[in-house]
Structure formats: structure tokens, C-alpha cells
Nucleic acid binder design. Structure first.
Length: 682
RNA sequence: GGGCCUGUAGCUCAGUUGGUUAGAGCAGGGGACUCAUAAUCCCUUUGUCGGCGGUUCGAGUCCGUCCAGGCCUACCA
């Protein structure tokens, strides 16, 4: 075997502001599998993580629930760790960015930046919420676009005209935190002049070994083709974080201290085990691997290497970047019940099933992974229960009393083939191409079952003369099974443990897959894995839906807690008279035809009937929210006397009434049973 | 607007540096078996490899272009 590597692995630090869900788990399960693989290969490998605990959002959450930030993050940390443990994600240390270790390390980094002369102070003018007493990040500001005047625009760009601008230029800005009009304030911020590391970053990102190629290209095209802007790493108080020692009243921005949290967690690990911290972060023979989602790419591929470089620590050997999770082809949705919390999954289903399913779908590219619930059920049942576990369950009891044969019988080369496949499987694991690894392993199972089939042990056992033959066949089957269990151990540690119990020989090393077990006793076979029932999957989705509904209801009950956001986004219009109102002729109409408009992103072409032969053609911006086929036949409320308007695709002779900000969030007005097309609404 | 990625059987995907009649699993159809968690085994149907054009003796694989989908576009987590 190759020499013993020293590998430090991390997953992204989950933000301490919400529960772990199936989307998070893609990353933690992926990382955990990789780590367990490395450990099984005999390498020295540690897996570190921590909660990411700083920033405005945490402050707001603590405030809302009436506890201190420390209490808030302690509660979340406990939940997170419980959920990870539930899925067999095993960290060597789980820390927090709000730890003394992290503070000390932040100081060290900061000192290094100061000494390198990379820190610069500059005044930043920002909108300020007087009521809450905080500076407003762009996303907490809404108002009208300064270019086109479109209302309800957030932050620094307009989704109507595409203009980008500073939040300060927004017309009639409103703080989305308090609903008040923000004032303009100036504060000093500290910046890191990262451009001075441009050449280094160019070389590091483009070297071809540390990043996936699509990521390297992306960085090259977006950031490295122009001077890197200074990175704003401080926030004025109030802010939940670490106060910068040489700049009282200023705090490190959450993204400054978050990645340092990887190291703080290492520090805790070392303090606990007596290991040498520098051995992990300064020894050039140590490999550092970060697993992250594509959303935090630039922090990990530009800022983080720059920080490590300046502070003279090891650079990452590889940043493994994965895509997001979709469920049944769509983004996870609370309304559809596909936003499943880790906790909810565990109530209904076996975590091993998810580990295997993810493994069977993961590759080393930055693609999204789809959890197809139907496929999930059949794949896990067929592969794991039907093919793999079945090998043991169909043969173990035949040799329960006599144990395995003393010498390994002739199996036609099956075991050897499996041993030979070990390297290819290991390569796939190493490259994070778990999908390939799983396919290779299942090929072994697909060869093993026909072996059992053709040797018919169930017939042999009835013939007292052929007991030796029976023992031979079962010895082969159980060894083939164990070989598979070894290869699957990174994904399914529990199955491996149950195999240990069955055959009495612990699986501790990958190399064991090359040597068959002989002469050992065979214990009574115990079920290793239950089939997934479709009803359990349904129940999980149902419960997720209910959780969402309950949360929404609770929000309502707790003192009319509907968000003030809609009114903030669109304040009430000027008062009108009854006569004014009567000018608008609202009518019930039936959608008799609904069709897509070629070349239109948002529009559907609707033919509305007002009863009799009276019809209107209306173009409505609801394409992203409704399917045409679902609309046909439905009653809607339309503005029937609106002046026709010529649009690019034809004339629109009215307007459908609907609420919501637009895009996918459009909610058409319905009308109760009994209304007739043509009736006026008043 | 710019950039990146993807588009191969009903579904999920393999297809290595361009080379013979394009593959696997699942699903579907037919049969066998009964040891096993209605598991397993055997046989079997299906593809203008997104469209068009080009390079080549030869392209799913390279180039161009168009179409569709996804994602990104730093001082937002």
C-alpha cells in the first residue's frame, strides 16, 4: 500500500440560524464517506467542523426569541450535532466560531495582515436603521429603482431593468427590519487589499490541482481578469462577533472568522488528544481538504487561500465543491413538503438509506443532485436489501452451526475478481466519484447472487452426503458478501459492524477485502436493513408539509405575526371615492384557453370568457407560477374595462387580478362556488 | 448583458486520448426458482447520442452555430 498520508478534512460550517435539512446533508454525508474511506485505507485523517455563529442574522434571531446570542447558538449547536450524529456523520471535533481558540487565531491572522501592510481604513457610507440601531446590508433595504423607477426593488440591482447601483441610490428606501426610513451614516471600515495577492491567487487557482476545472474557469473569467477589489472585513458595532483588538468598536465580519473556525476546531481537537496543531496546519506533508457548496465558492477559493498565504499556514490541497439538492427535480419547497429537516427524516426512515442513495448519485462535479423519491425507494431496496444483504440472509443460516470452511473453496475466480476491483473502487472513492464506486461494487453483488443461484445451497442442505459442498458454497457467498461490506463500509458503517458480528472478524482495513475469511464461526443471522416502505416516505413528506403549515399558523397565532413586509414593499395607495372604485369594472371570467407565448419568459396568453360569446384575450405575467393546463376552465377575476394595450406579442384586452411580488410568487384571485362568468365584482 | 455547466433509452446515469452493429441499473414484458426482507436468477422491448453545419478515412466523443434547462455575476449569508 502507499505511504500513510496525513489528511485534514472539513465541511462548511453550518450557520447557527436554522436546522439541518436534507440539502445540508449532501455535503456532510459526502465528506463523511470520504473521511471514513481514508481512515479505512489506513491514513491518518481527521474530520473537523463547527457552527458558524456570528453576524447580523444571528443577532436578529436572538433578539426575536428574547435570549442572548450565546444562548441561541448553544441551542442550535446541540441540535446540529444531534442531527449529524443521527446520520452517522462523525466529526473528530465539532466546535464553534465563537470560541476562545477562534479568537486567538483571528488575532494571529489579523496581525499577519497588519504586518504585511495589507490593511487599509476607509470610510463607508451606508444606510442606517435608527430604530434598530444598525447599519443595513443591501438585502435589508427596499425601494424604487433609481434608473427605471420600478418599485419593490431590493439591494443593489433592479430585476425590472437590470440596473445595478448602490443601496444608497434607491429612491424612497425602507428598512425591511423595522419598516422605517433609514438615514445615511458614515463609518470607518477596515479593508484587506487582496489585489496584492493577485499573482499568487492566479497561480494557485489555475494550477489545475486544487480546484475543479469549471471552478477555476469561473474564477478566471469573473475575478482574476481584473484587479481584485479590497475586501471589507470589519463591521461597526453593534455586531455579534469578535471585536478587533486594535480597532475598538469594530468587529470582524463573519466571513473573516468563519473559515478560521476550521483551525479553531483543529486546535480543540489537538488540545484534547495532545496532538501538535502545527503538524496539521504548518507541516507541508499534511493535505487539507475542504468540502463546500457552490454558493460559498469565492470565499474559499480566493479569500481563504489568501488569508492562509499571508499568515503562513498550509494551503488547501483541494477544495471539493458540490451542487445543491433538488427533490423530484425541483428546488426544495416548504409548501410541497420537500424541505425535509434531518430530524423529520430520522423519524420515518433509515439514515443509511440516504447515505447510500446520495453516494450512488454523487460525482466530483459541481452538479446539482436530485433526490427522486421513487427512485430512492427502489434503488435502496433493490441494491442494498435485494442484492447485498440478501447474500448473507440467504446463506448464513445454513452454516450457522458448522461455520466457514477451513480452506477457501474454488469459486471460479469470483473472490479474486472482487479483490482486483479494489483499486478501481478506491480510485473512485478517492476522486469523490462515489457514483462510480457504487456501480463497481454493485457489479460484484450482481455476480455473487447468480453464484448462489446456480449452486442451489437450499438443495444441498437436504442431502446429508453433500454437507461439505454446502459449507463451501456458503463460505463463498459469505466471503463475497463480506468483501462488498468492506467496500461499502465508508458509506454504510452499520452494515459493516453487523457483518463483524455475523462473522466474528472486525472489518478495520480496506486490505481485508483481498483475503477471504476461513474457519470462523457464523453467528445467528440478524436483519441488517429494513426495506423502505413507500408509505414511510409519504409520511415524511406529509409531516414536513404539516410542520410548515404549523409554523405558519403559530406565526399567525402569536399575536398577528404576519410579516409587515408586503406593506413595506408596496405602501397603501391614496384614498379614493366610491365613484373612483366603480370606474374599475371587475368581472368574473372563465379561462377557456391558456397557452404559452413563444419567446416570452413571463407571459401566458389567456382567452377569457365573460359568458355567451363575449371573450377577451389577455396576456398575464404568470408563466412562472401557473401551468396553462391547470388554468383552463378556472374562474378568475379580471379588470374588464381596462384600455387595450398593445404588447410585443399581441393586444391585451384586460388584466387578471393577482397578488404577490411576481415571478413564481403570484397568487391569482379565485371566487367561491356559484359565481357566473360575466358577473360584476363589487 | 456577460460567464460557467448540462442536454445519450420511460427514469437515473456510464461512455476513457475520435475507431468496429452506443452501454448499465431501475422501470416495462416473458419465464424459472423458493434459501432469502413478494427478495433472487434467466431471457427480452426501447435510442434520428438536443437541432443544423463543419473538420476527418471515421464523431456521442473535436470545432462553429442555434435551441432548451440549470447556475453564477464579490463588500449577501
Amino acid at each position: 500500500m502507499t505511504e500513510r498520508r496525513k489528511i485534514l478534512v472539513t465541511s462548511a460550517l453550518p450557520y447557527a440560524n436554522g436546522p439541518i435539512h436534507l440539502g445540508h446533508l449532501v455535503e456532510y454525508i459526502q465528506t463523511d464517506i470520504w473521511v471514513r474511506f481514508q481512515k479505512l485505507r489506513g491514513h491518518e485523517c481527521i474530520y473537523l467542523c463547527a457552527d458558524d455563529t456570528h453576524g447580523t442574522a444571528i443577532m436578529m434571531s436572538a433578539q426575536r426569541t428574547g435570549c442572548t446570542e450565546e444562548e441561541w447558538i448553544a441551542g442550535i449547536s446541540e441540535e446540529h450535532q444531534r442531527d449529524f450524529a443521527g446520520f452517522g456523520v462523525e466529526f473528530d471535533n465539532y466546535g464553534s466560531t465563537n470560541s476562545p481558540e477562534n479568537y486567538e487565531l483571528c488575532k494571529e491572522f489579523w496581525q499577519a495582515f497588519r504586518e504585511a501592510g495589507l490593511v487599509k481604513e476607509e470610510a463607508v457610507t451606508q444606510l442606517f436603521d435608527e430604530e434598530k440601531g444598525i447599519f443595513l446590508a443591501d438585502r435589508f433595504v427596499s425601494g424604487s429603482c433609481p434608473k427605471c423607477g420600478a418599485e419593490e426593488q431590493y439591494g443593489d440591482s433592479c430585476d425590472q431593468c437590470g440596473a445595478t447601483y448602490s443601496a444608497r441610490e434607491i429612491i424612497n428606501p425602507v428598512s425591511t427590519l423595522s419598516g422605517t426610513t433609514p438615514t445615511v451614516k458614515t463609518a470607518d471600515h477596515l479593508f484587506i487589499q487582496i489585489e496584492q495577492l493577485h499573482d499568487f491567487l492566479e497561480e494557485w487557482t489555475q494550477s489545475g490541482t486544487h480546484l475543479q476545472t469549471e471552478i477555476a474557469n469561473y474564477l478566471k473569467g469573473h475575478f482574476l481578469n481584473e484587479p481584485l477589489r479590497d475586501w471589507d472585513v470589519s463591521r461597526p458595532q453593534p455586531y455579534f462577533g469578535f471585536e478587533i483588538p486594535d480597532a475598538p468598536g469594530h468587529f470582524w465580519f463573519v466571513w473573516f472568522d468563519a473559515p478560521i473556525g476550521y483551525m479553531a476546531s483543529t486546535k480543540q481537537y489537538c488540545d484534547r488528544t495532545g496532538e501538535d496543531f502545527d503538524g496539521w496546519w504548518k507541516d507541508p506533508n499534511t493535505e487539507i481538504h475542504h468540502f463546500i457548496g457552490k454558493d460559498i465558492t469565492y470565499f474559499h477559493t480566493l479569500f481563504w487561500p489568501a488569508m492562509l498565504k499571508v499568515a503562513n499556514f498550509n494551503l488547501p490541497e483541494k477544495i471539493h465543491i458540490h451542487g445543491f439538492l433538488t427533490v423530484d427535480g425541483k428546488k426544495m419547497s416548504k409548501r410541497d413538503g420537500t424541505f425535509v429537516k434531518a430530524e423529520t427524516f430520522l423519524k420515518h426512515l433509515n439514515p443509511a438509506a440516504l447515505r447510500y442513495y446520495y453516494a450512488s448519485k454523487l460525482n466530483n462535479r459541481v452538479e446539482d443532485l436530485d433526490l427522486n423519491l421513487k427512485e430512492f425507494t427502489t434503488k435502496v431496496n433493490t441494491d442494498l436489501v435485494g442484492k447485498v444483504v440478501n447474500l448473507a440472509s440467504r446463506t448464513a443460516k445454513f452454516v450457522q452451526e458448522i461455520g466457514l470452511a477451513e480452506t477457501y473453496p474454488d469459486d471460479g475466480g469470483l473472490f479474486q475478481q472482487g479483490a482486483d476491483a479494489g483499486n478501481a473502487i478506491a480510485d473512485a472513492y478517492e476522486a469523490c466519484d462515489f457514483n462510480r464506486a457504487m456501480r463497481l461494487i454493485m457489479e460484484l453483488a450482481d455476480r455473487a447472487n447468480p453464484y448462489v443461484e446456480s449452486h442451489e445451497p437450499w438443495k444441498l442442505r437436504k442431502d446429508p452426503e453433500r454437507q461439505q459442498e454446502l459449507q463451501a458454497v456458503c463460505t463463498v457467498a459469505l466471503n463475497l458478501f463480506r468483501q462488498i461490506a468492506i467496500y461499502l463500509k465508508p458509506v454504510l458503517p452499520e452494515i459493516a459492524e453487523k457483518t463483524d458480528a455475523l462473522l466474528g472478524e472486525p472489518i478495520t482495513d480496506w486490505a481485508q477485502a483481498a483475503t477471504p475469511l476461513t474457519g470462523s464461526p457464523v453467528a445467528k443471522f440478524e436483519h441488517m436493513m429494513k426495506r423502505i416502505e413507500e408509505k414511510d416516505v409519504d409520511a415524511m413528506i406529509e409531516e414536513s408539509k404539516e410542520e410548515n403549515a404549523a409554523a405558519a399558523e403559530a406565526a399567525n397565532e402569536t399575536q398577528f405575526a404576519d410579516s409587515p413586509q408586503p406593506l413595506i414593499d408596496e405602501p397603501l395607495a391614496e384614498e379614493i371615492t366610491f365613484d373612483d372604485f366603480m370606474k374599475v369594472d371587475l368581472r368574473v371570467a372563465r379561462v377557456v384557453k391558456a397557452e404559452h407565448v413563444e419567446e416570452a419568459n413571463k407571459l401566458l396568453k389567456l382567452t377569457l370568457s365573460l359568458g355567451g360569446d363575449e371573450t377577451r384575450q389577455v396576456f398575464a405575467g404568470i408563466k412562472k407560477a401557473y401551468n396553462p393546463e391547470d388554468l383552463e376552465g378556472r374562474l378568475v377575476v379580471m379588470v374588464a374595462n381596462l384600455a387595450p394595450r398593445k404588447m410585443r406579442f399581441g393586444v391585451s384586452e384586460g388584466m387578471i387580478t393577482a397578488a404577490g411580488p411576481g415571478g413564481e410568487e403570484v397568487f391569482m384571485l379565485g371566487i367561491d362556488e356559484g359565481a357566473q362568468p360575466g358577473q360584476r365584482v363589487h
